[in-house]
Design a protein around this nucleic acid. Structure first.
Lengths: 79, 79
DNA sequence: CGAAATTTGTTCGTATGTATC
DNA sequence: TGATACATACGAACAAATTTC
């Protein structure tokens, strides 16, 4: 799982893209948590705050819900 | 809370001026923190480092004390 | 019930690169 | 040239919420 550290796309955007695709593919399913910020930072070799920023992107898109002390859960599509 | 982005006065100076006035007015009181760098950057729509620079001005004037990881606290006047 | 571990939340400190004035 | 300003990214420390043992 390698990111492009030199290109124009920010690391947190790259991670957000990866996570978004994974959710769309069904690798992460509704009502279940995606990897923790720490797991993401370990997996992609980035700072926790960078991984956190990626998760926030998904949260702002409504794809996940962040729960303090629990994790970030894939949202069940409404309707 | 709007700043003059075009005039000759740097944004960080404008923010420092606003904060200084607020402290003098008593909006922020001794031993209590002023807004965090992030809150200031959000409120004034500037980069965090610009807000940080404003806080540093006040710190250099002795009006606040910056505590890493905690915040910037209004100084209690000596005497 | 309580201590430890996990996870997210917050804050300041710092560095790099880019752009603008 | 230098000061200003922004975006990104990492580091360190601690707090708060939650779960696990």
């Amino acid at each position: 799982v390698d990111l492009d550290h030199d290109g124009p796309v920010p690391l947190y955007v790259q991670i957000a893209d990866i996570l978004r695709d994974a959710i769309r593919r069904g690798d992460y399913v509704p009502d279940r948590p995606i990897p923790s910020e720490k797991d993401l930072s370990d997996e992609y070799g980035v700072n926790r705050l960078t991984a956190r920023k990626a998760v926030r992107v998904l949260a702002e898109e409504g794809l996940v819900t962040v729960v303090p002390g629990r994790g970030s859960y894939v949202r069940r599509p409404e309707g």
